[in-house]
Design a protein around this nucleic acid. Structure first.
Lengths: 197, 197, 197, 197
DNA sequence: TATGAATGAGTATTCATTCAT
DNA sequence: TATGAATGAATACTCATTCAT
């Protein structure tokens, strides 16, 4: 909640860059300080420990998610439109900035630390709730079938996005994630449609 | 391809246990040897390096996957039935043996090593191909809608399974994964159904 | 080229002492740190790797050689005089500081590392060139016979010095190297003399 | 003195090959056994320890030197001729079989072990004595100048051979050692000649 | 705020050697 | 004679963290 100093933000940015370059393992105090041009011990002026850096990273990440979601909710468009925009945006964002997928890949690292793990869960649930809300909206407006539980649909959507991104990462970015994402969304949308043969 | 010795299998089992307990980071030669009751250097009598241990782990994992898949294919049942059995089995297996999800969480670690990464991708694709085949079967038999691409459905299914399992792990196994999996599958099945309102 | 810190010089000095005591094999990070009274990892604050330590050692060694050679060249004396001074000095230096012969004995070790090997070769050639120059001077001034190639004479001189020092080392410093060196030089000088029976 | 078994000789041969390939450091029980096709512990059936292997290697080496020297002495030729043959042979042998120079480079390694060191010294002195004898012969027959001490000449000759070989090794076998050796010998011979201007 | 130096625990791996079979 | 398994000590190096300046 506290505002971060410029230096703190710089440290977090460097951490993200390092994650993108070499995975979460590359986030060491040494690499961090090298990237910033400081000496290692100087980092500890700005964060109490490495754990605090990672937590701040997650917090900042979550805040951005919340903001993006808030913007989306405030738009005057139907639930299905919002959902489509969300999904396509997600694919686009990941494709544009592979750091994000690197970050997702780092989740398991955070499992050791309860605090960090909770931050992850928090964010995941926030997003899933929003998706669920959009689906409910769409169901109420008869935009999509209403004979299934929004919760599982939301989970299915998030899983599809993440798995597609994972495959993209494992293929060493070997295909166009956004195009693939559009197809994936098309399939999901069709599956949710009312009246089909 | 070579048969593993008892000791080798014991080492791999210990590795899995360590992964379950503390993530892939806990897989150190020291921990491994401690778990087995050997001295560290003794490990190297059985595997040339830590990398070889991890690769053997993946190979053994893949072999089990292949075997399970082969058994499934040989069953005289419809594509949809096979698919259902596969999905529910997957949830059941993960629920019964949390090591599996820990293993999936370790993927990121393997990214550093090209050989290991390929093993992961290999196995993923093998599974996805099988799922795709089941879906095509089901489509040809008019069990499910045939107006979408089996590829994306298969991806959607795998993503849903993995994400549900991930949430389960992040919740510290806080819900009944198999029950949740059944619901998830029910939703997916309904979405693939022909004729609905 | 960069100036070495006090600690860095201390590390190099300790390395030399270790070489003198137990050969190049005794130069381990552990021994080094023990000698200095630091913990092992502290060494890495001052040098990036063991290789860097050995290279710095060679560089420092070479720089001293160059300086000594430069001083010698600036003296206003004949080629033969310079040569005599050089040879006797060399014997004296080695006799006074057995580390030097230990160092020479370590050459083989450096063969594994191309960078280090080149440093050795560099220094050897620098010295041989200087000796050659002195011989040419002496030949032009008719101080010595001029009917042979200065290159082979220089090589012969260096070989004689090194081999005498080697025998001294292998005899566990069992004779007076400087006395033996003087005799050796006397023989070489006589062999180069003009007009003899 | 005891006769070596076939297996023992095979082990020594492998040791020499390893020295040639990677220096004395490459002589490990593991490499040795791999080369022979035995298991590590099997080596200990044939030699009590690694030290014993190295000693046997030196002994065998010395025996060959002695034999070669004996053959040479039995030839009915003048001291100078014998000397020339010896020197040129030496260069030829080294050039033909770089293992020898690798072996010479290993001397420093043996310094840790008193027994091994003595073996080296023994052999060196045997050779130097023979050379000295040839020189004395040549001096008595007025083939060469007799106004210098045969001991230093012999040392000078050995030093020249060794240093030339060392430079050859350090240049990564970058020149024709035998040609260079012939030139070197020509120079030495000229320096020992009677009557010159 | 930042530096420079140091710590201590850990990490994979190598090596000579021993011992039961 | 040979194998297979194990030991214990050593090796270079990394990492998060602390502390005096």
């Amino acid at each position: 909640m506290k505002k971060l100093s410029d230096r703190q933000n710089q440290i977090l940015d460097s951490a993200l860059t390092l994650i993108a370059e070499g995975g979460i393992q590359a986030v060491t105090i040494k690499n961090l300080s090298k990237k910033i041009g400081l000496v290692e011990s100087a980092i500890y002026r700005h964060f109490g420990s490495k754990s605090e850096i990672l937590e701040a990273l997650l917090v900042r990440f979550n805040q951005k998610s919340v903001k993006a979601m808030t913007r989306m909710r405030e738009q005057e468009s139907s639930g299905l439109n919002q959902l489509e925009k969300f999904v396509l945006n997600k694919f686009k964002n990941i494709a544009d900035d592979p750091v994000k997928i690197a970050f997702i890949f780092s989740e398991k690292y955070f499992l050791n630390d309860e605090v960090l793990q909770n931050r992850i869960v928090e964010n995941m649930e926030m997003i899933q709730n929003e998706i669920q809300r959009m689906i409910c909206d769409a169901q109420e407006n008869n935009e999509i079938r209403n004979d299934f539980d929004a919760r599982y649909i939301s989970q299915l959507i998030m899983g599809s996005i993440r798995f597609t991104a994972t495959k993209w990462r494992l293929s060493n970015y070997g295909f166009d994630l956004f195009e693939e994402g559009k197809e994936m969304w098309g399939t999901i949308k069709k599956m949710m449609e009312r009246n089909n043969k």
